[in-house]
Simulated scan of single mutants.
Amino acid sequence: MAKEETRVNRAIRAKEIRVVDDEGGMLGIMSVRDALIAAEERGLDLVEVSPNAEPPVCRIMDYGKFKYEASKRAADAKKKTARVEIKEVKMRPKTEEHDFQVKLRNVRRFLENGDKVKVTVMFRGREVTHPEFGAALMERVSTEIGELGLVEMTPRMAGRFMTMVLAPKKK
């Protein structure tokens, strides 16, 4: 569904509208033609701000400035939203100590940067008959990261993969 466009000047379809002037004062209910004349006298536009009201509310303002400020507000709101990425670290049940430490360092770095971490243990062949090795590895990861993060989703088996999600602790 397309975003409904704001109606301006001659695009306003209502017979009568409630008009607010550029200083915020109420001019009252009048015809669109009279409101357009009032807007043109001030060198401004007539903008429909509340199309669902009865009668629709229109404001006399500079439409270009209005659009610019609206886009600035939208950009500021977008900047303020925190983007949390989910990073993934993959291991095997028989991961050697050095490799485990390297992966753990990556988990720590991701959590310090404020990202969530999905730890995945991949089972191959007959390894899947011993999920306790994967569970022990997950338990070790969660204890080693300690104060940096907390377990958001406990370890779960899904086919040949065991996954766990860690979230950074709020400061």
Rank of each mutant, 00 (worst) to 15 (best):
E16R: 09
E40H: 03
K15R: 12
V49R: 12
F133V: 01
S50P: 00
T143Q: 09
F123Q: 05
A77H: 05
K90D: 13
K80I: 11
V165Y: 02
M30L: 12
K65W: 14
L104E: 03
K80Q: 14
R83P: 01
L148K: 04
L150T: 04
V84Q: 07
G25V: 07
A135K: 08
V119K: 00
S71G: 06
V141P: 00
S71F: 15
G25N: 10
R59L: 13
K170E: 10
G25C: 05
Q101C: 05
R140C: 05
G43D: 04
R105T: 09
K103Q: 14
R59W: 11
K72D: 11
A38S: 10
K79H: 08
I29C: 04
K116R: 09
S31F: 14
A38N: 05
L150D: 06
E54H: 08
K3S: 10
I60F: 15
R33A: 12
N106H: 07
E96G: 06
E16K: 13
K67R: 15
V20G: 03
A11G: 01
R156Q: 14
E139M: 05
A70S: 08
K90W: 15
M30D: 10
V84D: 02
L46W: 14
R7L: 12
E5F: 06
A135T: 07
N52E: 12
M138E: 00
A82Q: 08
K118L: 15
R108M: 15
F100D: 07
R33Y: 13
L137D: 00
N113C: 07
S50Y: 09
E97A: 08
M61F: 06
I86G: 01
R73T: 04
R126V: 09
K72A: 07
K15N: 09
G114R: 04
L104G: 01
E97D: 08
E96H: 06
T143D: 13
K94N: 10
G114N: 08
V117A: 07
E69W: 10
L104M: 14
S142P: 02
Y63I: 03
K90E: 15
V20N: 02
L148V: 02
A35H: 08
A14R: 01
G146I: 12
L27H: 04
E5Y: 04
L148I: 07
M162V: 01
E152L: 10
R59T: 13
K169V: 11
E88H: 03
I17F: 07
E97P: 02
P55C: 14
E88G: 01
F133E: 11
G159S: 09
V141Y: 02
A74I: 09
G28C: 13
L44P: 01
V121W: 03
R18L: 11
P93M: 11
R42H: 10
I60P: 07
F133S: 01
K103E: 15
V107F: 00
V141A: 05
I37A: 06
M91R: 01
M91F: 15
R7E: 13
G25R: 08
F100M: 09
K116A: 11
K90F: 15
P168Q: 06
T6E: 14
R59A: 13
G146C: 06
R33Q: 10
V107M: 11
L46N: 08
E97T: 05
D115I: 01
